[in-house]
Nucleic acid binder design. Structure first.
Lengths: 347, 347
DNA sequence: CTGAAAGCGCTTACAG
DNA sequence: CTGAAAGCGCTTACAG
C-alpha cells in the first residue's frame, strides 16, 4: 500500500517560483515581507506556497544569511551542584516557551570548567551555531563579557554585571529577599544569625552575602558569622555542622540557596537540634523540595520561569533591533513556612 | 593599536585550494579523508589549511550534506516534575561530555504536553535541526517510535520499549533495584510494605510497580498496597499521607523516585511518625538530596551520567554505521542509608 | 514593481 | 590520482 507516485519532486523555492510565474527572488521577498512586491503578487505567491506546502529550507537560509536561528546557553558548573539546582531547568522551560513560537531552538552546553567554557563559546561562534547567548552565574569582572563582545555574539546577562557591559541585563535583585529574611528573623527575636554563603566568585553569591551583612547592620546587630561554600549540598552540610557545633551556635541561619538549607536541615536533625524551636533556617530559590521537607522551608521565591521568558524576549529583541533595554524583574519575595520561629533562648 | 590589515579576506575552501594549487574538490576530499588523494598532496593541503587557519563552514556543509551535526532531546514533562528531578541534568551532562569532542551540539526542547511534543519532532525534522534524538520517558506503545520512524529520524531509546522498535535501546533494568529494596526490607523484618508508584503510563513507572509486586510474591507476602502518582512531590506527599493515616499503616514504603520519597519523609515527620523506627522508606535514583536529608535515604543508584554517555555513544554509532547494538548498562544498585531499619512492631 | 544573476561555502558525481 | 562544474536552496544587490 505505497503512496501513489504523485509529485516526488522536492518543493523548493524554485518550484514555487515557477508555479507562481515569478522569479525565485520575488518569492523570497514575498516570504520575508520585504517591500517592493505588489500586494496582489505577494498574495498569489504565498497562496501557491501554501498549496505546495513549501517551507523554506532553514539550512539554505542559514548559509545565505549567516544566521542560525538558534540561541545558546552554556552552563559551567560542577554536575553535582547543577543537578541539585532546579533553577536551570525552570529557567530553560521559560526560555523554551518563548522560542518555540519563534521557530528558534536552544542549543545547550554543559561544561565542567572555565577552560572548556571559553572553547565552547568560541566554537559555537566559529561554527555559527547560535545567534546569541544567555549568560548566567555572572562572576566578578566576568571574562565572558569581553570574550563575547570580541566575538561579536549578542548576549543577555542574567543579572547586572559589576563591570562595563555592552549587553542588556535581565535582573532580579538579590538583596530584598535576603533583607526580608533577616528582617523576619530579627522580628522573631533572633540576634545570633549566621549566613551560609555561596561562592563569592559569583555575583549572586557575594551580593547575597553583602545584603546579609547590610541587613544585620541595619538591625543594629553585630556582624554575623559567615561561611563561604560553593553552593553545593556537601559544602552546605559541612558549613552547618561547623556553625552548630561551636560553643555559642547561632539561633538562625540564612542559607544562600535551598539545597544547602535542606542539607543544613538534615544536619540539624542529625545533631538533635530542633527546627524551628532551637534553630531557624531560611533558604533561597523556593525550589519544589522546600515545600515538602519537614519543616517546610521559609525561603525566597524568584520565579525562574518568568526570568527565562524575560531573558528570551530580551535576547530576541536585541537581535532584532540591535539594542534592548535592561529589564528589572519584580524582586524575589519571602515565603514564610515552618522552618522559622522565635528562638527558645533569645540570648 | 589595531591589527595590521594583513589578510582581511575570509578564508574559505577556495583560498585554501588556490594557495595549495589544487581544486576545491580536492581540498574537500583531503579534509574528509576520502580515498583518491595522493598522500603527499593530502599532507600539503592539510598543511596549507592549518597555516591559513581554515575551518570548514558548518553551515555550508550542512546545506550540501543535508546534515546538522546536532542531536536533539525533547523533554515532555510538567515543569515542576522536571525541575525537581535531577536525572535529566545529569543525563545531559553525560551526553555533552561525549558530544563536545565530536563537534556536535545538543538541541534541547522542553515542551508542556504531547501535542507540542509531536509538533516539536516534526519541526526539528522539517528544519533539519538534528540528525538524531534521544527518547526518554518511554510510554506504553510509545507513539513517538512510529512517528520518528516515519520521519526517518534516527533515535536511541532510554530503556527498552514494550512494542516493536527499529531503534537501539540503552537500558538500565528497573527491576533489580526495586527487588533489592524489597528484599532489604523483608530481611529487616517488614511485612506490610507499600509502594508509591510513578505514572503507570510510563514504562519505568509500571516496571518498577511490577517489580515491586513480584518481589512481594517471591517473599511469600500478600499483595502490597500501591498508590499511583505522576512522580511529582505533590502526589508523593498526598499518597504518603493517605497510606500513613489508615488504620493499619505499612511499616515500610518503597517510592518510585527520590523526590517522592523525600516528600514522604516530610509527611512522616509531620505526622510524628519516626523514620526509620516507625517507618522505613526507600527511594529511587540516588539524587544528591537523598544523601543530605535526615535520615539519609536508602535508595537505588542509577548513574545517569554514565547513561548519558552510553546513549550518546550509541546514537553517534547508529548515525555513523546505520546500525547499533542495544546496550545494557549495569543494573542500578541499592544504597543502604539511614531511612530503613527493622520495624518496631513487626506485626 | 520585477527579473536574472551572483553569492553563501561547502560536497559530489563525472570526466579525464 | 586530479579538475572543472553542478548542486545544496536560499538571499541580495543590481538593472531595468
Amino acid at each position: 500500500m505505497r503512496r501513489p507516485p504523485v509529485n516526488r519532486e522536492k518543493v523548493t523555492i524554485a518550484v514555487v517560483a515557477k508555479q507562481a510565474g515569478v522569479s525565485k527572488g520575488l518569492v523570497s521577498f514575498a516570504l520575508n515581507d520585504r517591500p517592493g512586491v505588489a500586494a496582489e503578487t505577494r498574495a498569489r505567491i504565498l497562496q501557491v506556497a501554501t498549496e505546495l506546502g513549501w517551507k523554506p529550507s532553514l539550512r539554505a537560509r542559514s548559509l545565505s544569511t549567516q544566521r542560525s536561528f538558534a540561541l545558546g546557553f552554556v552552563i559551567a558548573r560542577n554536575p553535582d551542584v547543577l543537578a541539585s539546582d532546579p533553577f536551570f531547568t525552570s529557567f530553560i522551560a521559560g526560555v523554551e516557551s518563548i522560542l518555540t513560537d519563534q521557530g528558534r531552538t536552544l542549543v545547550l552546553s554543559v561544561v565542567p570548567d572555565e577552560a572548556r567554557e571559553v572553547k565552547t563559546y568560541r566554537s559555537l561562534v566559529a561554527d555559527g551555531r547560535v545567534d546569541g547567548v544567555f549568560l548566567s552565574d555572572l562572576r566578578h569582572n566576568d571574562p565572558r563579557i569581553p570574550l563575547l563582545s570580541e566575538l561579536g555574539l549578542p548576549a543577555v546577562t542574567l543579572g547586572r554585571p559589576d563591570g562595563d557591559s555592552p549587553f542588556p541585563a535581565v535582573s532580579v535583585d538579590d538583596s530584598p529577599g535576603i533583607t526580608a529574611s533577616v528582617a523576619h528573623l530579627v522580628t522573631l527575636g533572633h540576634r545570633r544569625i549566621a549566613h551560609v554563603a555561596g561562592n563569592s566568585a559569583l555575583l549572586h553569591g557575594s551580593r547575597r552575602r553583602e545584603a546579609f551583612a547590610a541587613a544585620l547592620r541595619d538591625a543594629g546587630l553585630p556582624e554575623g558569622q559567615t561561611v563561604e561554600t560553593d553552593f553545593s549540598m556537601a559544602d552546605g552540610s559541612d558549613a552547618t555542622r561547623r556553625l552548630l557545633t561551636q560553643d555559642r551556635p547561632p539561633t538562625a541561619i540564612v542559607f544562600a540557596n535551598d539545597p544547602m538549607a535542606i542539607a543544613g536541615l538534615g544536619v540539624a536533625h542529625e545533631l538533635g537540634i530542633r527546627v524551628p524551636e532551637d534553630l531557624s533556617i531560611t533558604g533561597y530559590d523556593d525550589i519544589d523540595f522546600s515545600r515538602y521537607v519537614y519543616p517546610p522551608l521559609t525561603t525566597v521565591s524568584a520565579a525562574p520561569m518568568v526570568w527565562g521568558r524575560a531573558a528570551a524576549t530580551t535576547l530576541l529583541a536585541l537581535m532584532e533591533n540591535g539594542t534592548a533595554d535592561d529589564v528589572d524583574l519584580p524582586a524575589a519575595r519571602l515565603v514564610i513556612r515552618g522552618s522559622t520561629a522565635p528562638p527558645l533562648n533569645p540570648w
